[in-house]
Design a protein around this nucleic acid. Structure first.
Length: 579
DNA sequence: CTAGGGTTAG
């Protein structure tokens, strides 16, 4: 009965049945079932209390007891201590060689390593897990999968790949974990390759594997593969899967087609808070702040409780659409009505919102009100806002803080250098660049890509590697002539080096996003929307230039940069010049 | 009768 209630997620009923049973009528199995119920309910403390209680009542824990209670300690405070204690008890009890017990122990050490409740050293805990794993005499598939997901969850993909190779056998879960892991760690192409390999080896991908592959498409911007995966899902009858559906919402959003995301969201038969969050985020990233806020209000009306991620997405949506009032209201409601304590990330969104709107002193007040010291996220938001408004003094202050906190971050140097360059202060630009060199900081190379003729075409600045780059350059030249007639003047302030002005114009005309846009215009069907993706923020001159291009060619151009989407149409951009 | 790997949202 306890197990039945627990399996249906009804822990309270399970607890009632358990409590209503007199001690004389309980046995070890009965205790085990209740400990498991607590563990599945993520209530580690209750599981541990019951574990102690059964021993006081004179029952000796067996293999089942240990596996359950060990799997429950990961989420409680002091889990590290519990973990080691239980490890000792297990060894003393003589069950230290039982595979299932050790499997639970491996996962428990990993949970400790990943727990926000436990202080350093996290790596050491992960290596403890590996030690237990290495010493196991008999490893089964569960052991290998546990070790694999440990590395995946801690982002240690090289070790994960080794485990994946070494495993004597694999099941659906193995593939799903690896595909999702590669997707989340920025290895989308490898993830999609693995998804295909999985099918070649005779496995029918489960919806988790699909979700991972779809996430890769979202990161890469591969609308074509994403749509293919969507139709495969429908053919296989997975269209009700929440994880796959939610991944699809994100994929459509991140590939630039919010309308498709919305259609899917509206037709999904089951949705949860993740679906709502994903949909609100998609609207926000495209600058549809008002719609994002409306959807959020609808979510509340439907009685779905917002979580900390909901508020992160709502606050960003407000920020990108300049909804200052609403942002303030939701920030207060988060704590006052929904009892969620704002974290540094929430404050950072508020600072972003205020700075973007030019309200620097309000942003400073906000920082002053924080119950903790401002970290990098706060000053990054501040600096970006200063750059947008050309506020030199405050920008320099924010940059100084960032140099102290994260000297290796290339973004700080670039933002500051851009700010000086915009004012023509070339001495300062070269000073920042020297500082960057002295610190050994390398700028992440900018690249843009576009999907055409069934594959991705990647362009770097001043690209010479792409086989059709000459056609791209001559088409761009032609475009610029037309653009100049409409009033386009290249804005060479966005060139970081000081050089002769004709050189500057050349440098700026070969930025990767311009090349990718031109290539898309050449290769995609006449009139089709061009969707370009860039790893970093879009450059100011490119932003201006693409506005003109959209007017000259009479087509819609969508650019996803590192921060958000820009929809260019008829010479205007949806971001209203804030990015 | 009871146990040990996973997913999607920022």
């Amino acid at each position: 009965m306890v197990t039945a209630y627990s399996a249906t997620g009804n822990v309270n009923l399970a607890r009632e049945v358990f409590g209503g049973t007199p001690k004389g009528m309980r046995d070890t199995v009965f205790y085990n079932a209740m400990i498991t119920a607590h563990s599945h309910d993520n209530d580690g403390n209750a599981a541990i209390r019951l574990f102690c209680e059964m021993q006081r009542d004179g029952f000796r824990p067996d293999n089942f007891t240990f596996t359950s209670v060990i799997s429950a300690v990961g989420l409680v405070a002091e889990s590290e201590k519990h973990c080691q204690q239980l490890h000792c008890v297990v060894v003393k009890s003589g069950t230290g060689f039982v595979t299932s017990v050790l499997n639970a122990l491996v996962s428990a050490y990993v949970k400790v390593a990943l727990s926000p409740l436990v202080a350093l050293p996290k790596c050491a805990k992960l290596d403890d897990a590996r030690l237990v794993f290495n010493k196991m005499r008999v490893k089964d598939l569960v052991s290998w999968n546990a070790m694999l997901s440990s590395y995946v969850n801690s982002g240690r993909m090289n070790e994960a790949k080794e485990i994946f190779q070494e495993m004597p056998e694999k099941n659906l879960l193995t593939w799903a974990v690896m595909i999702a892991g590669l997707a989340q760690n920025g290895l989308g192409e490898e993830s999609l390759k693995l998804f295909n390999l999985m099918k070649l080896q005779g496995f029918q991908p489960c919806d988790y594997a699909f979700a991972g592959a779809i996430t890769s498409c979202a990161a890469l911007g591969s609308l074509k593969s994403g749509r293919q995966l969507h139709s495969q899902l429908i053919r296989l009858g997975f269209e009700c899967s929440l994880s796959a559906g939610n991944a699809l919402i994100t994929m459509y959003g991140r590939c630039g087609v919010v309308g498709d995301a919305r259609n899917l969201f509206l037709t999904m038969s089951f949705v949860d808070s993740v679906s709502w969050n994903a949909m609100i985020a998609a609207l926000g990233q495209h600058g549809h702040g008002v719609q994002a806020v409306e959807l959020f209000e609808e979510m509340l009306k439907e009685g779905i409780l917002p979580d900390r991620i909901t508020f992160l997405t709502v606050l960003s949506a407000c920020s990108h659409a300049g909804l200052v009032e609403e942002g303030h209201r939701y920030f207060d409601a988060m704590h006052d009505i929904y009892g969620i304590t704002p974290g540094e990330d929430h404050y950072a969104r508020m600072v972003d919102l205020l700075c973007r709107a030019g309200k620097f002193s309000d942003a400073n007040d906000m920082i002053g009100k924080m119950p903790f010291q401002p970290g990098p996220q706060i000053w990054e938001a501040f600096l970006a806002g200063c750059r947008n408004h050309g506020n030199m003094e405050l920008g320099i202050q924010a940059a100084e803080r960032l140099f102290e906190m994260i000297p290796q971050n290339d973004g700080t140097y670039i933002l500051l250098s851009n700010m000086y360059a915009a004012k023509g202060l070339w001495d300062n630009v070269s000073r920042v660049r020297k500082l960057m060199r002295d610190q050994g900081v390398k700028k992440e190379p900018a690249c843009s890509w576009v999907e055409a003729e069934n594959k991705f075409h990647v362009f770097m600045v001043d690209d010479t590697a792409h086989p059709e780059v000459n056609a791209v350059y001559s088409y761009l030249k032609q475009l610029v002539l037309e653009m100049r007639k409409l009033g386009y003047v290249p804005d060479t302030r966005f060139v970081l080096h000081d050089m002769e002005s004709d050189q500057k114009e050349h440098a700026i005309s070969t930025h990767s996003e311009k090349l990718a846009v031109a290539f898309g215009l050449l290769k995609l069907p006449r009139g089709a929307t061009v969707r370009v993706f860039k790893n970093l923020r879009i450059c100011g001159d490119c932003h201006n230039a693409i506005k003109y291009i959209s007017k000259v060619v009479g087509r819609e151009i969508v650019v996803r940069d590192g921060k958000r989407f820009h929809h260019f149409k008829d010479g205007e951009c949806s971001c209203r010049n804030y990015w």
